[in-house]
Design a protein around this nucleic acid. Structure first.
Length: 297
DNA sequence: TCAATCACG
DNA sequence: ACGTACGTGATTGAA
């Protein structure tokens, strides 16, 4: 509660630029180890959304005036789509090609139940496993994050790899590559050097093994949204749109859109993001609009 | 000055 | 037997 009050409610009004009447963040191009942007002074990539009070803060972000509307464009499950495509795992590729809900689809597999019999709890646990896999979670880690014990967690992870066997192979190959070469790379060839991948210390080594898997996923997502941003920026200039791209939050772009341009902007943004690169499965972008950042999301 | 906590993806 | 999920930034309070 104090967190929201001190970090956002009290601090952000002081960040309003007196000339523009708006808050201007800094986007850093060369801070992160994976290729993501970071944002500071103030950080606008961690504006609250998960809690009720947090949502009130998000509502404070509005278009410049009544002729404009906020528009959010989010990549749907981009990291899982990337790992599906890079690994070539047919089961996961299949789920995305059919445009299935990936967490429900995973739940059906790892709990061995029909698609339409997946419970809320099963989907929620499958979601935790899906994200955990990208980070290299252990059975212990999974048991901390869920209501499952260690044994149940281990069974789920084992089931996961049985159902997505090529994903497991891909992860091992990434680790082997890192051991050989001392780095891993993203879709566009950005490298992350892993100096501890051959360490004698098991704890230090396994941290780099997790990085060998995670960095290309997170980093490729960063590559993709950057390509989309460049293309969008160029089209906006070319077409002399009044609308502006105003924020990037890792898998989301935020726009201040002139109402007269809304239909065109939607098409340009969705198309630019979905076709930034071609993978073995489609990229999917969800678009929302509203009179503030919460509504647009 | 630094680790812990918590905001986001 | 061991420790145990990736990437950030802002704030707080102990050392």
């Amino acid at each position: 509660m104090d967190k929201l009050l001190n970090t956002y409610v009290k601090a952000l009004p002081n960040e309003i630029n007196s000339d523009t009447g708006r808050i201007h963040t800094k986007f850093n191009q060369a801070v992160t180890s994976t290729g993501r942007l970071s944002s500071n002074n103030p950080n606008l990539q961690n504006i609250p959304i998960r809690t009720e009070n947090g949502q009130k803060i998000r509502k404070a972000f509005t278009p410049r005036n009544k002729d404009f509307i906020l528009m959010c464009a989010d990549y749907s499950q981009i990291e899982l789509r990337i790992i599906a495509s890079l690994s070539g795992d047919v089961n996961m590729i299949d789920a995305f090609n059919k445009d299935e809900d990936i967490h429900t689809s995973t739940a059906a597999r790892i709990f061995n139940v029909p698609h339409n019999k997946v419970s809320r709890e099963q989907r929620s646990n499958a979601k935790t496993v899906n994200f955990g896999i990208i980070y290299g979670v252990s059975a212990f880690g999974l048991s901390q994050q869920t209501n499952l014990n260690r044994k149940e967690s281990k069974i789920l992870i084992d089931n996961y790899y049985e159902n997505y066997p090529t994903l497991k192979e891909y992860m091992s190959k990434q680790i082997d590559f890192a051991r050989e070469n001392g780095y891993v790379e993203t879709l566009m060839g950005r490298r992350r050097y892993l100096t501890n991948i051959n360490s004698q210390n098991g704890m230090i080594r396994s941290a780099d093994e997790r990085n060998a898997v995670n960095a290309p996923i997170q980093g490729s997502a960063a590559d993709i949204i950057k390509i989309a941003m460049k293309n969008i920026f160029n089209i906006f200039n070319q077409k002399q749109f009044k609308s502006k791209m105003i924020l990037q939050v890792h898998d989301e772009l935020v726009f201040d859109v002139h109402l007269s341009e809304l239909d065109k902007i939607k098409k340009v943004v969705k198309n630019s993001m979905e076709s930034a690169v071609t993978l073995d499965i489609p990229l999917k972008v969800d678009i929302g609009t509203g009179k503030n950042w919460l509504e647009a999301h």
